[in-house]
């Protein structure tokens, strides 16, 4: 492997790692607060990509409907991100309200919540299929592709954007969790949920905020993914979602740093396995490696063993 190919692969690994990391964040945050594995989260990523598709095509005037004023390219990008994040967050919160909260109120075992989450995921996939049909959609070229070539390494601007946005999201979420009172409440809930209302903290509000953050990050991932690989289909979130979930577990579920680390580890293993072995081996070996990591560190890289309470 020459150096330029190696660097090329590092770039690809960082890009895929970014997608996994952005989705893994949502799994991780919701788990941290609710101890719920929100299996619908991969499909929220898909919903985010679709919402991004409709908003960007609308803003670009693809529906024979012209906005009364002309939007600059930058503004279209900005508005697409903003509106998509807001609407996807709305979807995440709605799922929490309709599917998870009533069960939580009844104090049912977490197992039922996880199964409900799986069903919600299937509902989103098949709801999309029923509403929009099986045809794939082409995401518009929201960010015009520019190709750079530096010392024999070829890369596009979208790759760089994906990586930078992921790092910004990481810094933003770390700040929220470590420096704000909402983040403090989220950490407190993950330690002892029963004691949190005793502090005068509205637990449901914190849970809603967690879903807002997780779902809007899935929306960011959805748009970035669609910009890089502009074909949308209803099941696009299923496999990526599963992989991101595994990334979250490998990093240590419930930890922001864990989600990021796990995402990048998965990205690197996948890409580099594929450079050495036939591509059909990719997932087999990648997950074998992750299994090995979990065997050595069952709580994940940044995870700590949860104190079990009597």
């Amino acid at each position: 492997m020459t150096l330029s190919i190696f660097i090329q692969n590092v770039m690809n690994a960082l890009q895929w790692g970014s997608f996994y990391a952005l989705i893994a964040l949502g799994y991780s945050m919701v788990y941290g607060v609710l101890l719920l594995i929100n299996f619908a989260h991969g499909d929220i990523f898909m919903v985010g990509a679709y919402i991004g598709f409709f908003i960007s095509t609308f803003l670009l005037g693809a529906y024979g409907f012209q906005l009364p004023w002309k939007l600059s390219g930058g503004l279209v990008i900005f508005l697409t991100f903003l509106l998509t994040m807001a609407l996807t967050a709305g979807v995440g919160v709605a799922i929490e309200r309709v599917a998870y909260r009533p069960l939580r109120r009844k104090g049912v075992s977490r197992l039922y919540l996880v199964i409900t989450a799986l069903m919600v995921g299937l509902l989103l996939e098949n709801g999309n299929l029923a509403l929009l049909g099986a045809s794939r959609r082409n995401f518009p070229e929201l960010i015009p592709k520019v190709l750079y070539s530096v010392g024999g390494v070829n890369f596009s601007n979208t790759k760089i954007i994906v990586i930078i946005v992921t790092l910004l999201v990481f810094v933003f979420l770390q700040t929220v969790v470590l420096k704000t009172k909402w983040g403090m409440a989220m950490r407190a809930i993950s330690y002892d949920r029963m004691a949190v209302p005793l502090m005068g903290v509205p637990v449901d509000t914190i849970i809603v905020m967690t879903f807002v953050l997780g779902s809007s990050m899935a929306a960011v991932a959805g748009i970035l993914f669609a910009v890089s690989y502009p074909v949308l289909e209803p099941y696009m979130g299923a496999l990526v979602g599963w992989k991101a979930f595994i990334a979250a577990v490998v990093g240590g579920i419930g930890e922001i740093r864990g989600a990021i680390a796990g995402g990048f580890i998965l990205g690197f293993t996948e890409i580099f396995v594929a450079t050495v072995f036939p591509s059909t081996f990719r997932d087999l070996i990648a997950f074998g490696v992750l299994l090995l990591i979990l065997t050595l560190r069952p709580n994940g890289i940044f995870g700590i063993a949860r104190r079990t309470k009597v």
Binding site: M184, R187, A188, S190, Y191, D192, M194, A195, L198, R307
Partner: peptide, 10 residues
Amino acid sequence: PEGRRIFGNL
């Protein structure tokens, strides 16, 4: 509360 229930991670 019984058993203190402080937030050990804070």
